[in-house]
Amino acid sequence: MPGPIDACAGSRIREQRKLARLTQRELAARLPYSYSLLNQVECGAKPAHPDFLAAVAQTLRVDVTVLTGQPYVTELQQDRLSELVRPIREALDLYDLGADDAIPEKPATELMTAAERLCALVRGAHLRNAARMLPATITELTTAAWRTESTQLWRALASAYRSAHDISVKLGYYDLSSVALDRMDWAAHRASDPCLSAIRQYMRALVYFREGEYLIGQRLISAGHHIVADAERTREAVVVTGQLHLGGSVIAARARQQSTVDAHIEEATRCAERSGDAAEIHWLSFGPTNVALHHMSAAVEMRHYDSALEQARHISLPPTLPPSRRAHFLLDRARSEMETGRLQAALGSLVEARRTAPEQTRYHPGARETIAGLVHLSRRTSDTLGHMSAWIGL
């Protein structure tokens, strides 16, 4: 029976390395990481961290998803989620066909409310419901926007495209997420909305962050700042500016640029002081709490795990924090706890993340690698760890 490593990144790295006809020492010589680490990741003794995966993917010239195994088709089929992807693809492809006469007219307010509802479902980690609702919402908004050329409807359509991106990322369909971002840009231009265009650059930057192209990611963050600088200096613009700085902080952390991390966090803190808790603006969850969460994430990315846990102890999550953001915090905490030998605490954080946002946690590659690491490090696999391992697909 295959062990956990056969379902994790280590075995995929080994497979791709052999396809490239490289020995472990030859691959390690091309990485900014040691031979020992590569060996331990391949045999499952250590989890494959995102920065390590990105470096290996770049060296082997494959997408990171080849190494993470995303999308996790078996689990998606078990959960009846894979069947929801094709309708999303089809809806995204209608953007330039104009109005569909077969679609009845609906009040603009109803369609804009539907776009807002999608954002709420995604932030609430209700991925299945959001994925079911998304195709019809995009289709109806596309026709309505073409019929009336309404700025508000173009803005709502851009928001729906953004939800398509968020859902695609959380389910591991990164090719689809890139299409959704292109559509978002197309609609944002028609809405003449610089804040939406800047948010799209922020999301593009995170795509390159995952792939290890940190310089491109930083250039996209800078482009987002230039776009939002042309907007009226409203609270909305302050929030988008702050969110761009938060994105820049985690990219800089992955690139091991501590001074740049500090500068971005400092600017984001200033924005949060001006905006206050602004979770309602573009559903970015921006505010002092999100700045603290990104500061902790930056520490995790730089492998400063003790610092990350110290920060986590001082973060008080408000009841209004969306489950999707709460689960992300719990996964960061679990990784830090595992890396510092707090295995039982790490398992507890993972169980809490599952309880908070089950679909998001099940399809998060970091959750898989952390669970695989716990299985390897534990002297015996407890019932809880065994259940978590089986549930997540290991």
Score class of each variant (00 low, 15 high):
residue 158 A to G: 15
residue 25 R to S: 13
residue 14 R to Q: 14
residue 289 T to G: 03
residue 231 A to I: 01
residue 112 M to E: 14
residue 165 H to A: 05
residue 52 F to C: 00
residue 54 A to G: 08
residue 16 Q to T: 04
residue 140 E to K: 04
residue 322 P to I: 12
residue 355 R to F: 08
residue 122 V to L: 03
residue 207 V to Y: 08
residue 343 L to S: 13
residue 140 E to V: 09
residue 223 A to R: 10
residue 308 A to T: 00
residue 64 V to R: 10
residue 177 S to E: 14
residue 176 L to R: 01
residue 314 H to W: 09
residue 325 R to H: 06
residue 49 H to V: 10
residue 80 R to P: 01
residue 116 E to N: 11
residue 25 R to T: 14
residue 281 I to R: 03
residue 157 L to G: 15
residue 207 V to I: 10
residue 379 R to S: 11
residue 302 M to T: 12
residue 148 T to G: 02
residue 385 L to T: 05
residue 181 L to T: 08
residue 136 A to V: 04
residue 240 V to F: 04
residue 28 A to W: 00
residue 372 A to N: 04
residue 94 L to T: 14
residue 289 T to C: 14
residue 272 A to I: 12
residue 141 L to M: 10
residue 136 A to W: 01
residue 310 E to R: 12
residue 370 T to A: 09
residue 9 A to M: 12
residue 104 P to L: 09
residue 217 G to C: 06
residue 239 V to H: 02
residue 163 S to A: 14
residue 278 A to K: 04
residue 316 S to E: 12
residue 268 A to S: 10
residue 331 L to W: 11
residue 250 V to Y: 06
residue 106 K to H: 13
residue 2 P to M: 03
residue 333 R to V: 13
residue 266 E to H: 14
residue 152 Q to A: 13
residue 168 S to M: 00
residue 288 P to W: 05
residue 103 I to L: 15
residue 142 T to L: 03
residue 85 V to N: 06
residue 58 Q to C: 11
residue 300 V to A: 03
residue 4 P to N: 07
residue 283 W to C: 06
residue 114 A to K: 07
residue 394 L to A: 14
residue 22 L to W: 00
residue 44 G to R: 08
residue 196 L to P: 04
residue 114 A to D: 14
residue 220 L to P: 00
residue 8 C to W: 03
residue 171 L to H: 03
residue 27 L to Q: 00
residue 201 Q to N: 11
residue 302 M to R: 15
residue 377 L to H: 13
residue 341 G to T: 08
residue 147 R to Q: 05
residue 67 L to M: 06
residue 266 E to N: 10
residue 132 R to P: 02
residue 374 L to P: 14
residue 128 R to N: 06
residue 17 R to D: 11
residue 47 P to K: 07
residue 243 Q to Y: 03
residue 84 L to P: 05
residue 278 A to H: 09
residue 87 P to D: 13
residue 220 L to D: 07
residue 285 S to E: 12
residue 129 N to V: 03
residue 150 S to D: 12
residue 117 R to Q: 15
residue 364 H to W: 11
residue 367 A to S: 15
residue 256 R to V: 13
residue 76 L to K: 00
residue 266 E to Y: 06
residue 99 A to S: 13
residue 78 Q to Y: 07
residue 130 A to Q: 02
residue 56 V to H: 00
residue 350 L to K: 01
residue 63 D to P: 06
residue 281 I to K: 01
residue 272 A to E: 11
residue 70 Q to R: 15
residue 197 S to G: 02
residue 366 G to Q: 09
residue 326 R to G: 09
residue 244 L to Q: 14
residue 288 P to D: 09
residue 252 A to L: 05
residue 248 G to T: 07
residue 213 E to T: 07
residue 75 E to G: 04
residue 142 T to G: 04
residue 377 L to D: 15
residue 361 T to N: 08
residue 377 L to Y: 02
residue 375 V to N: 04
residue 54 A to K: 00
residue 166 D to R: 11
residue 139 T to S: 05
residue 16 Q to H: 11
residue 387 H to A: 10
residue 231 A to W: 01
residue 251 I to K: 08
residue 309 L to G: 00
residue 197 S to W: 02
residue 138 I to Q: 09
residue 73 V to P: 02
residue 139 T to A: 08
residue 100 D to P: 05
residue 249 S to Y: 00
residue 384 T to N: 02
residue 116 E to H: 11
residue 159 S to H: 09
residue 224 G to Q: 09
residue 288 P to I: 07
